[in-house]
Nucleic acid binder design. Structure first.
Lengths: 337, 337
DNA sequence: TTGTAGGCGTTATCAT
DNA sequence: ATGATAACGCCTACAA
């Protein structure tokens, strides 16, 4: 007795007394097959427990029907939400989405690209925050890549952009107009790097410029990360700093959520003593206490656009790379009332 | 000129003036290759932009090094968090994780299994909430599947279980011991189905039994979903119901987050007028205002165990399926003070 | 150290 | 309507 191994089309064909090709045709409902033969084949499939070997099919077609979505951290509410939307949009094209986690580091992003080749994705949507799009190395040929959320346009890929500057500017103006005189920006970084954070910080600065106010460098505070914990530390810091901060724009909603908590730790009321404004409009924002005012980019629009672009390239389109800026809305809620 | 197509080993071999096999050996660092030849091959690889076609290799080896992780909805904080942990654990085995979304429906879960075959995963970790483990159909052969978080043990798969009953019981006892006389359970379902919700509800009932208190059916309220929005509605309902509810255990932390907001909408204070307790200990729980008391299963333990089990089966282990119950801790925070 | 032959499981093409 | 043959790109086994 030899090891039976997984049954193949040949096994089915032999059992049904037909050729491999006929089995293939039955499995794929392709050319007409006589009812008698079809039944015999289906019967043989059942008996052998045969399952199509997709790898072999992929080897021939060169297509997997899978696109990668690489994000810094799926644990972050924003990316979880985004992923859900991308998956929904991809379904419209019959595309499957596999998620990669880059860890918000350049190495991870480069690896995601390498992996997307390894895993034979047909394309990749990359939410890059660490790597410079100008220097990203790609798999051979013109592999469909769409960059998401980052604003450093390289001219090499399609970019779906968030309205980082305009959104942050509108948000800051709102805080100023609400009467805040000491508005902080939480999540500051090096302005020369084209990170999400620096883009938003530029918007913050643009608002001050428009109002003819001199920004105070002490109010642009860097964070150890863009998560709840860093936010909480920042919230406590605001209370302890003695800088008289009465308004704050955070680099993300998750940070704002932490800040809210950090302020509560110190008994500081929002919006009473400090008005708080976030960025992203994650689903949790409306359910915080107080509910969080925030810059709300149209996430569905972004997901749809990104998928449309990869799908088009996968379909063979050869348009020159372009930027696509998502619309946004400033959502005013309790935290800046 | 003909379409060059993607370069293959043959292309590289031709350019380097060697055989395909030599190229293969260089690429895989296998048998010794003379330095001269190696250089020529590497040079040719660079020039052609050749990249290994993994599909072809998989067709021979039958292994992809990828496991699937199928969860109801990655947009939910809990699953996002879980995914992060599983990805980290899988890395220890050199395994890659691809995420699937099942939509919390049986159809989605069955599809996830079908897909994991389609995508040639080596194994699957399935967080099943809809399908009955007893009736799940598997890909051919003994495909490594580990069920996560569900408590209906089938005897057919390894299960990594959450302490649903014990956790909910401990939580409910805590509420009772804090002096709550009207403790509600938010997220009730049909007790006969072995869902996560019904398991937790059993724990809730067990606590009442232990204290010799008759539970009030009006206090076991079903929800339209296990998300923020349903929670918010439930919170308002608590305030409007006139049932005198002064304590509540929710089926998940996300629901509790919504409830917190719904109560705030009605000006009900937590824990002053209503004490609130969640389940899961998502990262957000500690940062809510007030911070959320919750049942905290050891997520890292669960992720590690699940990965260990699939990895073992992928490695050929043939142990009989078993249950593995995660340890938990009751985290007391402000919401039940 | 390098090359040749054959096959992994499927499908396109052309023939019957 | 069905079958034979030849790829798809790589790797194992063996030969030189």
């Amino acid at each position: 007795m030899s090891d039976p191994g997984k049954p193949t089309m040949s096994d089915v064909a032999r059992m049904a007394g037909v050729s491999k090709m006929t089995v293939s045709n039955v499995v794929n409902n392709r050319v007409p097959v006589s009812d008698a033969v079809r039944q015999r084949v289906l019967e043989a499939i059942r008996e052998t427990g045969y399952r199509l070997n997709v790898t072999a099919r992929v080897l021939k077609s060169g297509r997997t029907g899978v696109i990668g979505l690489a994000v810094p951290d799926i644990g972050h509410a924003y990316f979880g939400h985004l992923a859900t939307l991308v998956i929904a949009e991809a379904r419209r094209y019959g595309l499957h989405v596999a998620l990669e986690q880059t860890g918000a580091a350049e190495a991870g992003e480069l690896d995601a690209i390498a992996q997307s080749h390894r895993l034979q994705f047909d394309g990749l949507i990359l939410s890059a925050v660490g790597a410079d799009p100008g220097t990203l190395r790609l798999p051979a040929g013109n592999f469909p890549v769409v960059l998401l959320g980052e604003q450093g346009f390289s001219g090499r890929f399609d970019h779906v952009l968030m309205p980082n500057e305009d959104g942050a500017k509108a948000a800051t103006l709102h805080l100023i107009d609400q009467g805040c005189e000491r508005v902080a920006f939480l999540g500051a970084g090096e302005l020369d790097r084209l990170s999400v954070a620096s883009r938003r910080q530029r918007g913050y600065l643009a608002a001050f410029a428009e109002r003819g106010i001199e920004p105070d460098p002490d109010l642009m505070v860097p964070l150890s990360g863009f998560d709840l914990t860093s936010g909480r530390e920042a919230g406590r810091w605001i209370a302890d700093s003695g800088l008289g901060i009465d308004g704050a724009l955070t680099v993300t909603d998750s940070v704002a959520q932490g800040v809210l908590r950090g302020l509560a730790d110190r008994g500081v009321s929002v919006p009473g003593q400090v008005r708080l404004l976030g960025f992203d409009d994650i689903p949790e924002a409306a359910c915080m206490v107080p509910s969080l005012s925030t810059v709300a980019p149209d996430h569905r629009w972004m997901a749809a656009k990104a998928v449309d672009l990869v799908a088009a390239r996968i379909g063979g389109a050869e348009h020159t790379p372009a930027e696509h800026m998502a619309p946004f809305e400033l959502k005013i809620r309790e935290s800046t009332a």
